[in-house]
């Protein structure tokens, strides 16, 4: 039980008589890169909102980073990171100010913030723009900064909702290198994407279809089970 970062059992969310998430049961191990796929409207966003403590479940239970998603929301939020394709950075603050702001929000001490700021800027090699407004920084860099800020407090798990949408192919790959580094560092990564080559970079892949988790397994397991040559084919077979 100790090394499970997500344990979900029969997790369900209804809006009126529409069931957005329908009894999903799964778990995610520490340090795992977990792909969460599905068509538009399959219930991914609703599931993520429950797992991050924003939305309560209608029935079923889930623990994330050891905390109950309905009863221990405040503790839960301190132990997770989140990044979406819409930037979580403040455009009219500089790079350094954004890091300081988020460090404060995550409850880091002044000393920790100074250390983390230095580390982050050095790792991404951004010292030449540390005092530049975020609005003036190119998109590809912003994505990498947003990810690094989302794991500033070394959370047990980080949720990435289509983090590479619209990004150029080289930056997309550099972004995935950051994901691998975070996972090696023990941070669990929960990621959604519409790029099927990226799905193949995950340790395990799950697929939502109309609110249900229709498939879950490693790439090789899924390719074998659905007799497919790649994830694109698996996706088409399951979603149609």
């Amino acid at each position: 039980m100790d090394n499970k970062v997500i344990v979900a059992k029969d997790l369900t969310k209804k809006f009126g008589n529409f069931t957005a998430v329908d009894h999903i049961t799964f778990d995610v191990k520490q340090g795992e890169i977990f792909g969460f796929l599905g068509a538009n409207g399959a219930g991914k966003t609703t599931a993520i909102k429950m797992l991050t403590g924003i939305l309560s479940s209608t029935s079923g239970i889930a623990k994330v980073a050891g905390y109950d998603i309905n009863k221990e929301r405040n503790e839960l939020k301190k132990n997770i990171g989140y990044m979406s394709q819409k930037f979580s950075l403040y455009e009219d603050l500089t790079l350094k100010e954004n890091i300081r702001f988020y460090g404060g929000i995550y409850g880091l001490t002044k000393k920790q913030i100074v250390t983390k700021t230095g580390e982050l800027i050095e790792r991404l090699r951004l010292s030449h723009i540390e005092n530049t407004l975020i609005s003036e920084i190119p998109l590809g860099w912003k994505q990498k900064i947003a990810f690094s800020v989302a794991i500033l407090h070394h959370p047990k798990i980080v949720f990435l909702d289509e983090p590479t949408s619209g990004v150029d192919p080289i930056t997309r790959r550099q972004f995935w290198n950051l994901i691998y580094e975070a996972a090696e560092d023990g941070i669990t990564v929960f990621v959604t994407t519409h790029y099927m080559d990226e799905a193949e970079y995950c340790d395990r892949i799950s697929m939502m279809v109309q609110g249900k988790m229709k498939a879950i397994g490693s790439l090789h397991e899924l390719l074998e089970k659905y007799n497919a040559k790649d994830m694109d084919e698996v996706f088409l077979k399951l979603a149609r």
Partner: peptide, 13 residues
């Protein structure tokens, strides 16, 4: 202009 951004692989096809 980018009609398929944010769209899943099935809808994109």
């Amino acid at each position: 202009d980018e009609p398929t951004t944010g769209v899943d692989p099935v809808s994109r096809k």
